[in-house]
Design a protein around this nucleic acid. Structure first.
Lengths: 143, 143
DNA sequence: CCGTCGTACATAAGCGGGTGATATAAATTG
DNA sequence: CAATTTATATCACCCGCTTATGTACGACGG
């Protein structure tokens, strides 16, 4: 491991904690929010396609979907081509919830961004594509 | 809120999920790890100074310290100047656990960093001070 | 000194969200 | 068509958080 990577890792570690505290406690758990975002971003999925990328077990996803359904944020549909399968999709209320959560976090973050110098702000913006690329790399590594 | 902030927020949101999945399942909860890092970084603290910055309730911190103590990662000491207070400090085993966790995450991250172009890598390194500054701003805003 | 009040921590009860083991039903296969 | 695999659900359990409450010490005015 290159030496500089350690510095990057340390910086990310600290920053991760900061981001974590930026969305104190909402009605949605981390996994619930992440799953809703996935459904919003890439459409309906069978339950068996959801739990692995979220890093939880299949029973956990069953229960999560049940909770989301109870709160009206997602819904189950039968898969016509496979009687065993369940297709999970996000509802309008779910989209609304995701959007609201995103908004809250964005505003908290925006307040912080005001405190940066223009150079620092530019550095952050310039790093965004790289961060996005890291996310993609992590996703394909997981698959 | 400036329009570009929304893009930054969206990027961070995605990146946050990536970081979250980078340290899959350890023996330490997120709060436990964060608390140990705090103890490692800024020395022993009274329990009442710990729970607020971690964003949990006082009973939760009492329980967390009890668990950490049971696992030998932290220890309680009486405060000689205040009979009510408890001073919590990290043990060598605790330092070891933090260090190990950090190592695991750093290696996983390092593997991803290999996939960046040199320009992207430089952009990430260049943004580190700004990310650090954001963490500081968040910390002082919380106080 | 001494009752009163605030502060620091612990305990209790309950709940959300995770786990592994197992059940059920539909699809696949030999 | 019996056997097996796959997709989901259910069960029993544990961990970590919550609020409400208990306990012991410190501070402080009479």
């Amino acid at each position: 491991m290159p030496a500089e990577d350690a510095a990057v890792a340390a910086g990310f570690e600290h920053f991760y904690e900061t981001l974590r505290r930026l969305t104190p406690r909402g009605p949605l758990s981390l996994t619930a929010a992440s799953t809703l975002r996935r459904l919003e971003r890439s459409g309906p999925h069978r339950l068996c396609e959801l739990y692995a990328p979220e890093g939880i077990s299949q029973p956990a996803m069953t229960q999560l979907v049940t909770r989301l359904e109870k709160e009206g944020l997602a819904e189950r549909t039968a898969d016509p081509t496979d009687g065993r399968a369940v297709v999970v999709s996000i509802t309008d209320a779910g989209r609304e919830a995701v959007s609201h959560r995103r908004q809250v976090r964005a505003e908290a973050l925006s307040a912080l961004l005001q405190g940066l110098t223009p150079e620092q702000y530019e550095a952050v913006v310039a790093a965004l594509p790289a961060l996005e690329r890291l996310s993609d790399l992590a996703a394909e590594q997981a698959s």
